[in-house]
Structure formats: C-alpha cells, structure tokens
C-alpha cells in the first residue's frame, strides 16, 4: 500500500455509511479495499487535465414538470413499514 492510501480508515468510512463491521470484515476489507484502490490508481496514468467531466451520459437539460397536484393513494405506502402508529411511521429514538 502506498503512502497516499495510508489514511484509508475502513472503520471511519463504514460509520459514514452507517455500517458496523465485524472484526473479520474489518480485517478482510482493509486488505481488499486497499487493493481495489490501487486498481483505481491506474487512472493516474490517464491524461485528463483539460477534459470536462461527464456527469450525465446524455447531454440533456431543463427537464421539468408543470406545477400540478396529483394525489397518491397514501394508504398503499403505509402498508410498507413494519410499525405504524396512528398513521405515523415509527422510527427509533434520538
């Protein structure tokens, strides 16, 4: 692993995406993910200094909808969560 990757902190990143890794996963990942990053570093060889990034594959702009209300049968959505209380969706406490 090169020095540039020495700051790769699996635990911190996992907590950023709300994952808690088991000790085995942590061990496995720190090896595997560093290897994958090395593979990403192949891009260092690409000559892209004057190139614009492409965020969207097609160049399309200004896609809008009109400001019209069209209600959705919300009861369908309330059948999805496991816990609903008086139409409120339950979430764990702060």
């Amino acid at each position: 692993m090169s020095i540039r990757e020495s700051r790769f902190d699996v635990k911190r990143l996992a907590s950023l995406v709300k994952l808690r890794l088991s000790p085995e996963e942590e061990k496995l990942f720190s090896v595997q993910l560093s290897r994958i990053l090395e593979f990403f570093n192949r891009l260092d060889k690409a000559q892209v200094d004057d190139v614009e990034p492409t965020f969207h594959p097609l160049e399309i702009y200004n896609v809008f909808r009109e400001d019209i209300v069209s209600p959705y049968p919300s009861d369908k959505l309330l059948s999805l969560p496991s816990r609903v209380k008086e139409r409120y969706i339950w979430a764990p406490r702060m």
């Binding site: 809008f64 009109e66 919300s74 959505l77 999805l80 139409r87 409120y88 969706i89």
Partner: peptide, 21 residues
C-alpha cells in the same frame, strides 16, 4: 399524518424526482 405522500417524497425504492418548473 402521512396522507400527503407518494413514492418520490417518501423515498420508496425505484422512484425518481422530476423538477417543478
């Protein structure tokens, strides 16, 4: 509560946003 919702604003998988002009 939760009468003014749809797949988009509740983040149901597969739903997509479209901008109000």
């Amino acid at each position: 509560p939760n009468t003014n919702i749809c797949p988009v604003c509740i983040g149901e998988p597969g739903s997509l946003p479209v901008l109000n002009r």
